[in-house]
């Protein structure tokens, strides 16, 4: 070998002495500096928030730093209900169900499902990029952009077609329900340019059997609510968590035979 051995030396990087947060303040008890006497979220006392505001408001507060107005709160709550369950056919839900029926420790069911929910196909991995797409194009002419993007070659029928992040087709068709959810959210007073532009863009794609995907709907609503794109992936996982857990726990209480197991006749080992 021709390489001279290199001396290893620590860099003099300057690390902070204490972690800094703008979100949460814990006040220690007078007797014990490790015990929390009270805490505040962006300045509001937690116990007062418990009695005076909804869970949705405090979720918004955590990420935005201010309490939402009535319209923002209504939009976020409607979004949370819309995304509360990806449904039993979603890969992440199926992962939860497999963990449940496989007698995985229940504490692992949600992390397992949320990991799968992090994928870029119908999952959180697509939300940040969809938010950036919407923020970039929400002032553009949706018909013109659709027309320009549709000039690209169309993939084979069975392939995913993501014409743009958050927009595309599944199983050769547009997702009907995603479009309905988007239109219902766009009709709320808290909606903004993201949802409205997205609806117009989806309309421009409809003739090609393309439209909103749930990832795009979430992205548009979060853009309108003022969330940062980097928050989008995790917030989407958070919104889908209740349904994932519920389906996993439903199967956790059943025997291993409660889900199909592909028999050898239907398991085909193909040669490469």
């Amino acid at each position: 070998m021709t390489r001279q051995r290199v001396k290893v030396q620590r860099r003099n990087e300057s690390f902070v002495q204490r972690t800094v947060t703008r979100i949460w303040q814990e006040q220690a008890s007078a007797e014990n500096p490790y015990i929390t006497e009270s805490c505040r979220c962006h300045g509001y006392d937690l116990l007062e928030l418990m009695s005076g505001r909804s869970y949705v408001d405090v979720l918004y507060l955590l990420f935005r730093g201010e309490l939402p107005g009535k319209n923002e709160s209504m939009l976020l709550e409607a979004l949370m209900i819309a995304m509360i369950n990806p449904g039993p056919r979603h890969p992440a839900t199926r992962a939860a169900m497999n963990a449940g029926v496989g007698k995985t420790d229940p504490v692992h069911i949600l992390p397992i499902a949320l990991t799968v929910m992090g994928g870029s196909h119908l999952g959180a991995g697509q939300v940040e990029v969809a938010m950036r797409f919407l923020r970039k194009h929400r002032d553009a002419d949706p018909d013109q952009l659709a027309s320009d993007l549709l000039k690209h070659p169309m993939p084979a029928e069975e392939e995913d077609w993501r014409l743009a992040p958050g927009f595309g087709r599944r199983f050769a068709d547009a997702e009907c329900l995603s479009g309905k959810i988007a239109r219902q959210l766009a009709a709320l007073p808290g909606s903004g340019a993201g949802l409205r532009w997205g609806c117009a863009f989806a309309d421009a794609l409809a003739a090609q059997r393309l439209g909103w995907l749930n990832t795009g709907v979430v992205a548009a609503a979060l853009v309108d609510l003022g969330f940062y794109p980097r928050d989008g992936a995790g917030v989407f996982q958070l919104l889908s968590a209740p349904g994932l857990l519920a389906h996993g726990m439903e199967l956790a209480n059943k025997p291993v035979t409660a889900m199909p197991y592909v028999d050898d006749e239907h398991y085909v080992i193909e040669k490469r």
């Binding site: 204490r18 972690t19 800094v20 947060t21 703008r22 220690a28 300045g43």
Partner: peptide
């Protein structure tokens, strides 16, 4: 508690 530095509202 004071090992986390709060710089918020």
């Amino acid at each position: 508690c004071d090992d986390i530095e709060y710089r918020g509202q």
